[in-house]
Every structure is written in structure tokens, then in C-alpha cells.
Design a protein around this nucleic acid. Sequence first.
DNA 1: CTGTTAGCGCCTTCAA
DNA 2: TTGAAGGCGCTAACAG
Lengths: 349, 349
Amino acid sequence: MAVTLADVAARARVSAATVSRVLSGNYPVAESTRARVLRAVDELEYVVNGPASALAAATSDLVGVLVNDIADPFFGIIAGAVQAEMGATVGEPGRGAEKLAVICNTGGSPERELNYLTLLQRQRAAAVVLTGGAVEHPDHAAAVAAKASRLAASGTRVVLCGRPPIEDATTLAFDNRGGARRLTEHLLTLGHRRIGYVAGPAERTTTRHRLEGHRAALTAAGADQDAERLTVHGLYDRASGYDATLELLRRERTLTAVVAANDTIALGVCAALRDQGLRIPEDVSVAGFDDLPFSADAVPALTTMRLPLHEAGARAGRLALGREPQPPGGVAMVRAELMARASTAPPRA
Amino acid sequence: MAVTLADVAARARVSAATVSRVLSGNYPVAESTRARVLRAVDELEYVVNGPASALAAATSDLVGVLVNDIADPFFGIIAGAVQAEMGATVGEPGRGAEKLAVICNTGGSPERELNYLTLLQRQRAAAVVLTGGAVEHPDHAAAVAAKASRLAASGTRVVLCGRPPIEDATTLAFDNRGGARRLTEHLLTLGHRRIGYVAGPAERTTTRHRLEGHRAALTAAGADQDAERLTVHGLYDRASGYDATLELLRRERTLTAVVAANDTIALGVCAALRDQGLRIPEDVSVAGFDDLPFSADAVPALTTMRLPLHEAGARAGRLALGREPQPPGGVAMVRAELMARASTAPPRA
DNA sequence: CTGTTAGCGCCTTCAA
DNA sequence: TTGAAGGCGCTAACAG
């Protein structure tokens, strides 16, 4: 069938062991033999059999990246950055083979998340990176934690990017709570008091943390009387933002600002407000979270909290490869930065 | 180290072969034995060793999906749809294990594309889906074609989604040329004659086909005198659209419309026009391509050609799994549909 | 329906 | 510096 190590060995007139050594490059081999082997590899167009070497070596070069929604740039940016760190520089034998980062789309489903973890465990993945908020259902959280421990125990590095720490994993946590708080403080400082909040799905950590930060700011300013009534939950998408905004306006027509749990939702918020004949920011200010690429281009440009997604993803990738030292305590906090733009302004007098 | 098939077999008091049969479910096994085995699997928390079974069975359950830029929703949508087709229903033994779709980000680099193909070949992937336009450099095209043939020869299904057909691969081609032509015809029908075009990178098939469609419409209408001068190339991103628009205005201030090679570029075009004090569509009409989710929400809503990305990705996934019959000749054309929205209108009188 | 027997292709001591 | 040999964990005939 396919060309094997033995074929290469025969052609280069050496043993299979020698070919293996040349290819993995972790063992001294005479330069002349080396050249001969490489030539044979070339002539035969030999390609290592991954499964076979993974079996023999008990390690694979797969790195799994789990995302909630690959069509959402939030995850696309992180995943792309992780993958870029793996540097696909194959084909140059002699220097340890590179890793293959595989992106797995869970669609936010707990079952699929677990399924993918099993699949990766089955593949004996070298590392797993879990990105984005976690589902907070206790059973599921326990199941994920258990899987993570088992993966870690079997030598798979587990890295969390944008979700709360768990045991046996290195984590890059996003400062959702602090960021959300500063964002709402920004609005309060501008003079807003009746602020609507469009939250994400209720059972996710990101949703809860951002909402908590928002509430904390309101409470600190003594402006939290209506907080409950002025909060609407939905999905992290544009349609939810649209619908939620209509609901908010129904509940409180005199809103002067709306904070969205993320930029995508904020887009829907803007659309709904506009359709209701309200101007941004003259009538209602709008703010988002994440600072995705399109946010700066929105009209008006969206005020939001910037999360260094690319940097975080790259760092997660390095941690997954063991190329970067663990942060103290295994946990590092990634801060969010306020990007005050045109979508927020003082309320009408 | 880890629990193996043999451990399960011992515990269930059957042979390893029986356990294997229960797990893969492709062979009759007595219900009682089956139950006993499943219980042992459970108690031992056994997880199949992927590499080992791939080696023995000479097939793996990996399916590779190559994309040019995973942070771009165009690819995110396609990749997500492919992956959804794989249905990660693991953990339910007895029904053939599901595939693991792995998304590989080439960043548009020919070398990385080839590298990933090698990596997937090394993993003995069950299938490979190549998405998005191809680089037209002859050497590279030949290299990719050769790799594809080799993959196909070794039993890996090769599916193309959004790129021109090659031998040994099933392809879902996007009707970029026809779509672009209809889009420009739409503008011509509205009365536009001085139409700028912001193209993508010169050496990509998608870029060329869309540009050709545009030119064909102009030529048919006898409006192609300035076509060359009114075309600017850039990347498929917002910044390029912005810069290209400034350049176009420098070349021809009296433009009444700008066609962008895709929606992302169109966003930049809109931003630039606005910054130049031009209104859309009163002063200048703008059109994009793809109909990404944000396009309908832009202000004004963007006229564009809709490509059924999700459907195409899903179909590519099914073809990769061999769950859908080959289209006649191995090639199917995916049509684009005109979405005439608020960003285009007749030119000023 | 179930057990036995060979490998799948590669890595890795152990010797030479 | 190189070769020989055993085994990684699983699947796939082939018997029974």
C-alpha cells in the first residue's frame, strides 16, 4: 500500500531504526547516512504514519481547541491565534514535528463539549485548550473537571482560555467582572441612571460575571433599584440583542443607555433602537464587550471593553505546548480595556 | 498506564476481539455479553486508543477542514457547518464512532496549506475539505493537485468547497463569476456608469472570478472604458477596503458606485466614503459579496450577493463522509443570489 | 456467536 | 554511530 519506514530503510541501505532517528532528529546520526536517508525519503515521497508513531511513542501531535461557536469572530480570533502558535512547519525533518491544532466546535452544547474531550482523549492529544465561558450546570461542571483531570493524568496538557479556573488546568481567565464594572461606571459617570442590560444565556460563567460587574457598578452608585427589571437574557447573537431591546423598551421607554453582554448583541441593540426611531447616542447610548473588529467600524463606533483575544489565544497556545512558563498559581488574569467611542454620550438633559 | 482493551476483556471475561466488536458495533454479539462488556467499559472508564485502532484498521476518524482565515465569518460559517455534519455523538458505543472534524487555518499561505495537507496525510485522515479560493501560482496549484491525488489514492476523500475543481476531488464551486456579473448588472440597471471596484488579492481564484464577472457586465453594457483604472486590489479585509476607496476617489472623484469583492471589504468602503463626507447611497452606492450576517445590519443595509455558506458547508461535510451521492461529473455549482438592499440606489440625476 | 492468531508501522531499549 | 528485536493497543481474518 503506502510507503513505509522499511521501504525507506531498504532504499537508503540502513535499518529502520536509523531512519526513525533521522526523522525524529532526537538522536545523533552520521551526516552522510542522514543525507542518504533524507534523499530516500524524498524519492519515495514517504510520509510518516501518524497513528503508528503515536501508538509506538504513546504521544500524538494533536492539540485540541474547543470553541463554542466557530462562526463567531470572538472564537475565531482566539482559535486562529492558538493555531498560529503551533507553526505548521512540517516537512522539515530533523526538528521535532510540529503540532496539529484542531478546532472543535461545540456549539455551546455541554454534551458535545464532553464528546469532544473524549474524542481528544481517545486520540491521546498532546494538549487541549478550552475557550470561552463554561456552562454552569453542576453536573456538567463536575464532568468536565473529571475529564480534565483524567486528561492531565494521562499527560495531556489542559489550558483554559476565557473561562474560570479548574484543577489540573492552566488558566487564562478574562476579567469579565471587572471589565463590566468599569464599563457601566463609564456610563454612570456620563450621567446615565436608567440603564438597560442585555445579558447572554443565563447558565454561562461569562454571562454571570459580566452581569455581576454591571450590577456592582450600579449598586456602588446607588442606582440599582430597577436592575432586575432592566435586565433581559438572550443568546450571544444579534437577533437576541434586537429582541431584548424591544422588550427593554416595552418595560421602560425612558432608558437612556443599554449595555450589551457582547459586541454582537450590541449590534442587534443598535438595530432595534434605530428601528424604533431612537438615535445613538443622542437618545440612547449603547455599549458592548470584546471589541471585535467590526465594532470600531459600526456607525456610530461602538464603545466597548477590549479583550486582547489574539494575545490571549497565542499565550494559550504557548502554554499548551509548554513553551511558556506557568503563571503563578496556574492562573493569569487577562484584563479588559475601556474603548470609549461614539456610541456613548451623556443623556439628554 | 491507561486502561486497555485487554483490561476490559479480562474484566468482562471475554476475549479482546469481542470487546472490539461490541465497541465498533459492526458485528453481531450476544446481548448478554454485550451488556457485560459495556458495564466493564463503564466501570473501568475505558477510552479507546485512537492511534492504535487507526493503525490496525488503517483508517482514522479525522476529517481535516482547511480554511484561509478562521477569524473571518465566511470561513467560520462553512467550517462550523462541516463540523456539525460530523455529529460528535461519541460515547455511545455500538454505533460506528463519529468523525472528528479538525479545522486548519492556513492564513492564506500556500506553504501552510501544503503543510497541513501533509499533516493530514500523515494522520491518514478519512477526508479533507478545502475551502475558499485557491492561490493561482502554477507551482502551488500543481503541488496541491498532486497532494490531492495522493490523498485520494490512499483512500482519503477530498472535497473542495468554494474553489475551482481539480482532479480526484469532489467540488462544490461557488458561482463567483455569475454572481459578480449579476451584481454589477444590478448597478448598471439602476443607471450607474462610473463604478469603482475593490478587488481582493490578485493571485486568488475567487478574486479573479469575481472581477471577471464584474468586467463582463460592464463590457456587455458598453461601460468598460475605465474598468482598469477604476479597479484597485487589496486584501479581503476592512482596512484594504478603506484604503482602496480613498485611492479610487483620488483617481475618479465622480464615482457613483463602488463594488467590493466581499462584504468585509465593503464595510471599509462605507467607512471611507463616510469619512470623505459622501452619503450612501445618495452620493455613492456600495455593494458587497457573500452576505455575511453583519451585512443585513449595516447602516445602510448592504446590497450583496448571498452565498448559501452554511448549506454548502453542510453538503461538503456530507460528501466528505460519503453520505451524499457525488454530483454529476464530481462538480456542483453553488449559485449566488442578489440581495438588493439600501446601500444601492440610482445615481444622482 | 466467540476465541485465537497475526500483524498494522513505528519507536526504543539493548547490543555491537 | 548503527542494527536487531520486542512491543505499543487494536482489528481482522480464520477457526470453532
